[in-house]
Design a protein around this nucleic acid. Structure first.
Length: 1158
RNA sequence: GCGCGGUUAGCUCAGUGGUAGAGCACUUCCUUGACACGGAAGGGGUCAGAGGUUCGAGUCCUCUAUCGCGCACCA
C-alpha cells in the first residue's frame, strides 16, 4: 500500500541525500548553536538568489499575490526595539505567505522625517560651531548638509533590518524624497488644491519655539506639568481712568467679606493646606476696587487685551463695561475692558480670566467674539519682545514667567502664588511646551472622509469586504478621530522636506498696507426694502464724494476716477449688506498696490491697458486681500472697474474662528466680463492665495519672476501616500494601468504598525487611498503593542532604557531576538521588554539545534519510508501531537496571534518532542532490530522536517541551516523547498486518510498519556524517597494489561531505571514498598533496607486525600440533577469519565495502603 | 470629564463558560552519549472586591476600587 500522496511536496520519507550529510565528522557539529556566521551566510545567499524579489508575472489565478509596505523608518534613524517587534511581525507574515505559495511583495523604504532629521543636522552643525541657527546658512547650503548627512547615515537602519533577517524586496526600496516620490507628493498637493481642499490662512496653530515651525494637533502631546498659579490684582477703573469707588461694590450675598489688600498676606509659594478662599472683588482703604486674577502665565500679561467674567456671576457682572489697569508692562499701563463671556468658568480660580488673544487658543476665540485687539509679545523662538516691556523684553518665556511674577510682587499686586499642576501641550519632537501662535499656514480639509470612515469594520463586525483592524477595538479609536476631524496644518517652517508647490508673483509680496473700514449704519442708509436701501447707498456714495471723484493712488502717483456706471452696476442687483464696502473705496484707491499691467482682453483700441491693484483690507475680524482693476484709456484717464473673481462665499467672510472657509464650487467662479452685470463690490474681497494671477499651485515653477512658498510639507503629507506612491503610482490612469507592480500588489494585504500612529499615518493613508486610487490601501491592519521597559516606561534614548538590538543580535542571535520578542508580544498589548526573553529565545534555538544534532549523530543507513506497521505508540503519539501543533499554529497565524504561535511551537517542540518523544525514541534507536531503528529515524525526519517549516517564519536562519544540514532540501522540487526552506510548503494538518494510514486515533493518545503519567509517578517516587538521580534503581511493574517488551524498555528508559521487572498480576509486595499506579498498571520501588512504613503510609494518605477531594468535586456536580439534565452530553461524559478515573486511582491507593504492614 | 485597556503564582504574562497555565525566579537532586543555553521532581493561586446571569463564571452582565493609555480640557 503506497503512502498517500501529500499535496505540495510534503515528504514522508527521509531524504536519500541523508547519507551524504552523514559523512560529516560529528565532532565538527558544535554543541551550542553559533548564530552569527550562519546568519550572515544565509542572508547573503538569499539576497544573491533574489528570493525576496517579487515578480508580478508569477501571479496567476492559482497563485495569488500578498503584499505589505514597511512603515518607513526615519532614514537616518537606528534600529530600536519597536522596529524589531514591528519588522519581525512583518517578516513572519511575509515568510509564512511565501510558504503558503503566494507571490510576496514586502516593500521597504525610508522616510525623510522632516523635523527629526533637520533638528539632528542643525544640532550637529551647531556642535561643530558652523552655525548658531539654521538661518546662518541659506536654504541651499543647509540642504547640502542634510543630504550629506543622509548619505552618511541613511541606510544604516536598512542594514540593521537585514541583520534581523527581514525578507524585504530591496530592489524596490523607496525613499520619500526620491524624485518620483516627490512628484507624487506635488501632484497630490496640486490636485487637492484644485479641488479646493487646501487653503492658506492666518490661524492659531501649535508653534514649536525650538524647531520654529508650526505643528499639527497630532504632534502635540499633553503633559502634566508642575507650575504655579499666580494670583494678582488689577484696579477697576472707568473709561477715563478714574477709580471705581468702593460704594459701587455692595457686599454680595453669600460671599465672605472681601479681604483688605493691606492686610492680606502676600505670600509667594504659600500653598499650605489653608482652605481655598472664596474670591470676589476687593476694596482697599482708599475705596479703590480691585479684581483678582489667577493665571499660570504672568509673562503674557502685557498681551492681555481684556479681562473676562461670566455675565451671570453676581460677584463681577456689574463690572462688565468698566476697565482695569493692566498690570504689565509697568512702564506702559493700559486700560483694558472688562467683558462678559459665557465661557468663563465661575468656579475656576477667582472667576476672572485674563484674555490674551495672541497667545492662547481659547482666548483667541473670545477675542474674535468681542473684537479684541491682538498684541503679540512672544517671538517665534519663544522669547519676549519689546511689547512685553523693558523688564521682560529679550527673556525666554520661562525666565519671563519668573520675572513677571517678581515684577508683580515688587509692585505689590501679587496676591499669592500657589503650586499648581496642569496640562501643557508639548512638542512631540523637541519635547518643549508648544506656544499657541497666530501665523499664516496651509491647511488641508481631509478628502474621502466618508468612504474611509465606513470601510473599517467596527468591533465585532465580520463583514468580508471591510478593512479590518487587529485587535478590532482600535476601530473605535479610529472612528472617534474620523468623526471629529479638524483641518490638518500641513505647512512646516523647515527646509528639509517637500517644498510646497505654490508660487507667488511679485504682487503678492508687495502687499503691505492695511485699510480698516467702518460700517454704515441704518441712519446713513435708510430704507425698508432693497430698492430704498440701494438708493440710499448711491446717495451715500455721492455725499461721501466717491462717485465721479478722482483719487490719488499713493503707490503709482496716478489718479483713479470712479465712474457712476461702475457703482450703478454694483448696486444693480444686490442688497444693502454688500454696500458696506463703499466707504472703504476711497482708501482702497489710495492705498492699493499696482501689481500688474496687462493689455485688455479681448484687445481693444479703446482701452490702453488694464492695471491690477491689490489692497489689504480688514473686514470685521478677518484680513482680506482686495483685488480690483483699473482701465487706462488712451487719454491716460484711469477708471475704476470693479471686475473681480468671486472665490469665497458670503459666509466665508463671517468671522468663523478656526473653522475653515467653505470653498466655492468651480461653477461659482464666473469669469465675468469687465463691467458686466452681477458683480458686487463685496466680490472684490478675495484672497490673493487663490487668485491665479498672483498665486499658482502647480508642479513646476511658472517662470523666473515667480517665487516658491518657502515652507515645506508635513512629513506625513508624503507618508500618507506610501502604499501606492512606492509602487510607482503616477495619478495618470493610463500609466497606472500599465504598471504591473501597482496592478498586482495594490491594495496591499497587511499593514503592521503601532497604534500610536493610527491618526498620523493609518487613517490618513486610508483617506489618501480612497481619494487617489479609489480603494482601501490595505485589508488588514495589525497593531503591535508598544515596547516598554520592565518598569512600563516607553523606551527612549534619553532614558537610556532602550537596549541596542544589534548588541542583542550579536550576543544571542537574530533568531533568538525574534523569538523572544514575539513570544512576549500578545496581540494588542504593550510589551514589557526584558532581555530574559531574548535569552529564552537563544536557549530555544540551542534546543532546536541540539535536537537536530541528535538526529544527525544517529546518522547511518536510513531507509526513508515510514512503515506504519512498525510505528511504536510513541511514534503515533508524536505524529498526533504534530498534527495538533500544525492546527493550533495555523489558526494562531490566521488570527495574528504570534505569541501563541511561539508558545505552541515552544510547547510542542520542547515539552512534547524533546522531553518525551525523543527520550522514548532512544529505546528504539538502541534496539538491536535495525528495522525498528530505521523506522524511528524516518518518523523523526518526518517530524523535524515539518517542525523546521513551522519554525521558519519565526526563526529563518537556524531553520535554513538545519534544513540543509539535515539534507531535507535535497529531495524536493527546487521551488518547493529544494533550494531553500523559504519556499517549502506550509505544513498541513494530517488528513483523515493519513491518520488512518498511520493508525492514529484517540486511543493512541490516551494510552501514551497514561504511559507518561506513570513515568512521572515513578520518577516522583524516586524523589520522594531521596534517591539521587544517578542512583541506579530497579522498578517492579505490575501491568494492568500485558505490555510488549519494547514498551517496557521505553518505560525503563524514561524512568531512568537500571531495570524494570514485570511481575504477575497476582503478585503482592511482601514488604513495605513505595508504589504508584494508574490505568496502565502499578510501579513498585523495592528499596534495599527498610522503608519507613509510616512515611509511606503518610505519603499515600496525602495522595488519597487529594484524590478524594477531586472525586468529591466531580461527584458534587454529577449529583446535581439540574446539571445532569442541562449539561451537554459531551461534558457529562467527560465528568463521568473523570470520576471513574479518580475512583480507580483511589482504589489503587487504598490497595497500596492495605498492603502496608501495621 | 468621556472612552479604551489592564488587575490571574514572587516577577512578566497566556487563558476560547466545563479539572487554573507558561516562561523566568525559588527548593531538591543529576554533568546518564543531543542540549547545564540541559534533565528530573517539587513548592507556590480567595483569578482586585461586591452583586447578578447560569447546572456551572478567571471567562458573560452590573457596580466599586486601582493602575495604564487615548481623547477633550479651566485661565
Amino acid at each position: 500500500m503506497p503512502f498517500p500522496a501529500r499535496s505540495r511536496g510534503v515528504i514522508a520519507r527521509a531524504p536519500a541525500a541523508w547519507l551524504a550529510c552523514a559523512d560529516l565528522d560529528m565532532s565538527e557539529i558544535p554543541k551550542a548553536y553559533e548564530p552569527s556566521a550562519v546568519e550572515d551566510k544565509w542572508y547573503q545567499s538569499w539576497l544573491e538568489q533574489g528570493w525576496f524579489t517579487a515578480d508580478p508575472s508569477r501571479v496567476s489565478p492559482r497563485r495569488s499575490a500578498y503584499s505589505m509596505v514597511i512603515p518607513p523608518p526615519n532614514v537616518t534613524g537606528v534600529l530600536t526595539m519597536g522596529h524589531v517587534l514591528n519588522n519581525t511581525v512583518q517578516d513572519v507574515l511575509a515568510r509564512k505567505a511565501r510558504m503558503d505559495g503566494t507571490e510576496v511583495l514586502w516593500l521597504p523604504g525610508t522616510d525623510h522625517a522632516g523635523i527629526a532629521t533637520q533638528t539632528v543636522v542643525e544640532k550637529t552643525l551647531r556642535k561643530q560651531g558652523l552655525i548658531r541657527h539654521r538661518d546662518d546658512l541659506d536654504r541651499e547650503k543647509f540642504l547640502e548638509h542634510v543630504w550629506a548627512w543622509k548619505d552618511k547615515h541613511g541606510g544604516i537602519i536598512i542594514q540593521q533590518l537585514k541583520k534581523l533577517g527581514c525578507s524585504c524586496d530591496w530592489t524596490r526600496e523607496r525613499f520619500t524624497m526620491d524624485p518620483e516620490y516627490s512628484r507624487c507628493v506635488q501632484k497630490v498637493f496640486v490636485d487637492l488644491f484644485r479641488k479646493g481642499l487646501i487653503y492658506r490662512g492666518r490661524r492659531m496653530v501649535n508653534w514649536c519655539p525650538v524647531s520654529r515651525t508650526a505643528l499639527s494637533d497630532e504632534e502635540v502631546i499633553m503633559k502634566e506639568q508642575r507650575g504655579h498659579l499666580y494670583y494678582f490684582r488689577v484696579q477697576v477703573v472707568e473709561a477715563d481712568g478714574s477709580p471705581v469707588r468702593v460704594e459701587a461694590v455692595p457686599p454680595t450675598a453669600g460671599a465672605p467679606p472681601a479681604p483688605v489688600p493691606g492686610l492680606a498676606a502676600s505670600a509667594v509659594g504659600s500653598g499650605d493646606a489653608a482652605p481655598p478662599p472664596a474670591w470676589g472683588p476687593e476694596s482697599d482703604t482708599e475705596g479703590r476696587t480691585w479684581l483678582i486674577i489667577a493665571t499660570t502665565r504672568p509673562e503674557t500679561i502685557p498681551a492681555d487685551t481684556a479681562v473676562a467674567v461670566h455675565p451671570a456671576d453676581p460677584r463681577y457682572a456689574r463690572f462688565i463695561g468698566k476697565f482695569v489697569k493692566r498690570a504689565l508692562p509697568l512702564e506702559g499701563p493700559a486700560l483694558i475692558p472688562v467683558i462678559g463671556d459665557e465661557q468663563i468658568d465661575r468656579q475656576f480660580g477667582t472667576g476672572v480670566l485674563k484674555v490674551t488673544p495672541a497667545h492662547d487658543a481659547a482666548d483667541y476665540e473670545i477675542g474674535l467674539r468681542h473684537r479684541l485687539p491682538v498684541i503679540e509679545v512672544l517671538e517665534a523662538d519663544g522669547t519676549l519682545n519689546a511689547r512685553a516691556g523693558r523688564d521682560l523684553a529679550g527673556l525666554d518665556r520661562m525666565a519671563g514667567r519668573k520675572k513677571a511674577a517678581e515684577l508683580l510682587e515688587a509692585a505689590g499686586t501679587l496676591v499669592k502664588a500657589e503650586p499648581y499642576v496642569h496640562n501643557v501641550g508639548f512638542s512631540e519632537r523637541a519635547d518643549v511646551p508648544i506656544e499657541p501662535r497666530l501665523s499664516e499656514q496651509w491647511f488641508l480639509k481631509y478628502p474621502s472622509v466618508e468612504p474611509a470612515r465606513v470601510c473599517v469594520a467596527a468591533p465585532g463586525d465580520s463583514s468580508p469586504n471591510k478593512l479590518r483592524f487587529h485587535p478590532d477595538r482600535w476601530a473605535r479609536v479610529y472612528d472617534h478621530w474620523m468623526a471629529n476631524l479638524k483641518d490638518w496644518c500641513i505647512s512646516r517652517q523647515l527646509w528639509w522636506g517637500h517644498r510646497i508647490p505654490v508660487w507667488y508673483s511679485e504682487g503678492h509680496t508687495k502687499l503691505r498696507r492695511r485699510l480698516v473700514i467702518t460700517r454704515l449704519t441704518g441712519r446713513e442708509l435708510p430704507g425698508s426694502n432693497i430698492r430704498e436701501l440701494r438708493r440710499s447707498a448711491l446717495d451715500y456714495a455721492v455725499r461721501a464724494g466717491i462717485l465721479g471723484q478722482d483719487f490719488l493712488n499713493l503707490d503709482t502717483g496716478q489718479t483713479i476716477r470712479v465712474p457712476k456706471s461702475s457703482l450703478q452696476h454694483a448696486f444693480s442687483r444686490f442688497g444693502v449688506a454688500h454696500v458696506k464696502l463703499v466707504p472703504a473705496l476711497p482708501g482702497l484707491l489710495r492705498h492699493a498696490v499696482r501689481v500688474a499691467t496687462e493689455p485688455h482682453q479681448p484687445p481693444s483700441t479703446q482701452v490702453k491697458a488694464v492695471e491690477t491693484y491689490l489692497a489689504a483690507l480688514q473686514l470685521g475680524d478677518q484680513m482680506f486681500r482686495v483685488k480690483f482693476r483699473v482701465k487706462v484709456f488712451p487719454s491716460n484717464i484711469r477708471l475704476y472697474d470693479h471686475q473681480a473673481v468671486l472665490l469665497w462665499r458670503e459666509k466665508a467672510i463671517e468671522p468663523d474662528g478656526l473653522k475653515s472657509p467653505e470653498v466655492a464650487a468651480p461653477g461659482d467662479h464666473p469669469s465675468r466680463p469687465a463691467s458686466g452685470s452681477g458683480v458686487l463690490l463685496a466680490d472684490l474681497v478675495t484672497d490673493v492665495n487663490h487668485d491665479p494671477a498672483f498665486t499658482r499651485c502647480q508642479e513646476t515653477a511658472p517662470g523666473p519672476e515667480w517665487t516658491q512658498d518657502p515652507d515645506v510639507l508635513d512629513t506625513w503629507f508624503s507618508s500618507w501616500l506610501w502604499p501606492f506612491a512606492t509602487m510607482g503610482w503616477t495619478g495618470d490612469p493610463a500609466r497606472d494601468a500599465a504598471n504591473r507592480t501597482l496592478q498586482t500588489f495594490y491594495p496591499t494585504t497587511d499593514l503592521v504598525t503601532g497604534p500610536d500612529i493610527i491618526f498620523f499615518w493609518v487613517a490618513r493613508m486610508i483617506m489618501a487611498g480612497y481619494e487617489f486610487t479609489g480603494q482601501m490601501p490595505f485589508r488588514h491592519v495589525y497593531f503591535t503593542g508598544i515596547i516598554r521597559d520592565r518598569l512600563g516606561r516607553k523606551m527612549s534614548k534619553s532614558l537610556g532604557n532602550s537596549p541596542d538590538p544589534l548588541e542583542l543580535i550579536a550576543q544571542y542571535g537574530a533568531d533568538a531576538l525574534r523569538f523572544g520578542t514575539l513570544r512576549s508580544a500578545p496581540l494588542g498589548q504593550d510589551v514589557l521588554f526584558d532581555e530574559q526573553n531574548v535569552e529564552l529565545g537563544r536557549n530555544f534555538c540551542n534546543k532546536l539545534w541540539n535536537a537536530c544534532r541528535f538526529r544527525q549523530l544517529q546518522g547511518g543507513a536510513v531507509e526513508g519510508e515510514i512503515v506504519p506497521e512498525r510505528l511504536t505508540s510513541d511514534d503515533r503519539w508524536i505524529l498526533l501531537r504534530l498534527d495538533q501543533a500544525i492546527r493550533e499554529i495555523s489558526r494562531a497565524f490566521a488570527e495574528y496571534k504570534f505569541n501563541e504561535v511561539a508558545a505552541t511551537l515552544h510547547r510542542f517542540f520542547w515539552s512534547e518532542y524533546c522531553d518525551w518523544y525523543l527520550e522514548a525514541a532512544k529505546a528504539a534507536l538502541q534496539a538491536p532490530d535495525p528495522a525498528r531503528r530505521t523506522n524511528t529515524l524516518a518518523v523523526m525526519d518526518f517530524v523535524l522536517n515539518h517542525t523546521l517549516r513551522l519554525f521558519h517564519p519565526l526563526l529563518p536562519f537556524i531553520t535554513e541551516e538545519l534544513w540543509h544540514g539535515l539534507g531535507y532540501a535535497r529531495d524536493l522540487p527546487p521551488d518547493q523547498g529544494g533550494r531553500t526552506i523559504q519556499f517549502a510548503p506550509w505544513p498541513k494538518p494530517l488528513s483523515e486518510e493519513e491518520k488512518a494510514w498511520f493508525g492514529l486515533d484517540g486511543a493512541v493518545e490516551t494510552r501514551a498519556a497514561a504511559k507518561y503519567e506513570l513515568v512521572s509517578l515513578g520518577r516522583n517516587l524516586r524523589t520522594q524517597f531521596n534517591l539521587p538521580a544517578n542512583r541506579r534503581v530497579t522498578f517492579l511493574f505490575r501491568p494492568a494489561d500485558p505490555l510488549p517488551s519494547a514498551e517496557l524498555e521505553v518505560l525503563r528508559l524514561l524512568l531512568n531505571a537500571e531495570a524494570l521487572q514485570p511481575v504477575e498480576p497476582a503478585w503482592q509486595p511482601t514488604r513495605p514498598m513505595p508504589s504508584a499506579a494508574n490505568s496502565l498498571g502499578e510501579l513498585f520501588l523495592p528499596l534495599e533496607g527498610l522503608v519507613d512504613a509510616g512515611a509511606e503510609r503518610a505519603r499515600l494518605n496525602r495522595e488519597r486525600e487529594k484524590v478524594a477531594a477531586e472525586i468529591a468535586r466531580v461527584r458534587d456536580k454529577l449529583d446535581n440533577p439540574t446539571f445532569v439534565q442541562r449539561v451537554p452530553p459531551a461534558v457529562l461524559e467527560e465528568h463521568q469519565r473523570r470520576l471513574a478515573e479518580w475512583q480507580a486511582r483511589e482504589a489503587q491507593v487504598l490497595q497500596a495502603l492495605a498492603n502496608l504492614p501495621e
